[in-house]
Design a protein around this nucleic acid. Structure first.
Lengths: 164, 164
DNA sequence: GTTAGGTGCTTCAAATTCGAAGCAGATAAG
DNA sequence: CTTATCTGCTTCGAATTTGAAGCACCTAAC
């Protein structure tokens, strides 16, 4: 009576389970390195990394928030923190007075450079040590597909603006 | 000069990137359903699910914390909340006076049953819609291997107990 | 059996996170 | 041009999360 038509196969269930487990375990392990070497939280690292990759090292707040999948208010908080440390600057956009343009500073790039190798090394040790090249390739393909699927839904920043 | 020996291949990098992206996007989407249907946070759901699966529906606090990869103090907080709602009970272990045994109640099982089908359905839609059966199978195999690798490291509960 | 150290859990203070509400500039419709 | 709506960001309050410190019990070495 309590049986629903199982809409996930056992294999799918275990894939889902493994996914949450891996990300839960990976996160704190990687964060430790970031905190020790660069006094960065994971989000802060992601923000710097995105800015470092962006053309001119600049980006709008909203695009950053969507990029790292974070609430807008959370991003404001973190951006303040990074700005106080001199790792980024915030300035109004010339195009749109409402927009804030975030730019990575030289100091920000320096921290990024200091932290990056160890970060990569940690990920390699934790995530890829037990995997073959083919595994890594499969993983990239499969999760890339899922990511694209999830990105198709409206992003966090489009959150409800309820009618009055 | 600024080039380090890239210790991750481009493929590995994109796999890593996709992994963080997928888990970041999946989490809030799934949480919405849990909150709407059962007023549960993701952790709370995981806790109930684990207890529901456990023999007798009971488990030690520490084992629960390690199982869902959560801090011990965080678990205390969530357990209090679930206990107040009558979804679990906490009682001292007969074997070990220090231990607290958490048990799921009938009400807890009821909430779990109410929430479960929708949860599974959400995961299917979000995670497995774009994937073939082979993909799911590969994902389970690969992430299962990583998970085992990560679980080999000492768990969260074995955190530093520094010498005085 | 006494003592030193280990283990299980909670309390505490501090930091982070989020959504809702608010503010101001932009955009479109008439 | 005016008004209604939308969009980008911040402020605010409430909830969550964490590590460190503390308490009590357990274990083992002597």
């Amino acid at each position: 009576m309590t049986e629903q038509p199982a809409s996930l196969t056992p294999t799918q269930l275990s894939a889902y389970f493994a996914l949450t487990e891996v990300s839960s375990l990976l996160r704190p392990a990687v964060e430790k390195q970031l905190r020790d070497v660069g006094a960065l939280s994971y989000v802060q690292f992601q923000l710097l990394a995105r800015l470092g990759d962006a053309v001119d090292g600049r980006s709008r707040m909203t695009d950053l928030a969507d990029g790292v999948v974070y609430s807008r208010s959370g991003l404001t908080y973190q951006a303040q923190s990074l700005e106080e440390r001199g790792l980024i600057t915030r300035s109004p956009s010339p195009d749109d007075e409402r927009s804030t343009i975030v730019a990575i500073t030289a100091a920000g790039r320096a921290v990024l450079q200091a932290v990056f190798p160890g970060h990569i090394e940690a990920v390699r040790g934790l995530l890829f040590t037990p995997l073959s090249d083919d595994d890594a390739s499969d993983l990239a393909r499969i999760l890339g597909r899922v990511s694209a699927h999830l990105r198709a839904a409206p992003p966090r920043s489009a959150a409800r603006r309820r009618k009055t």
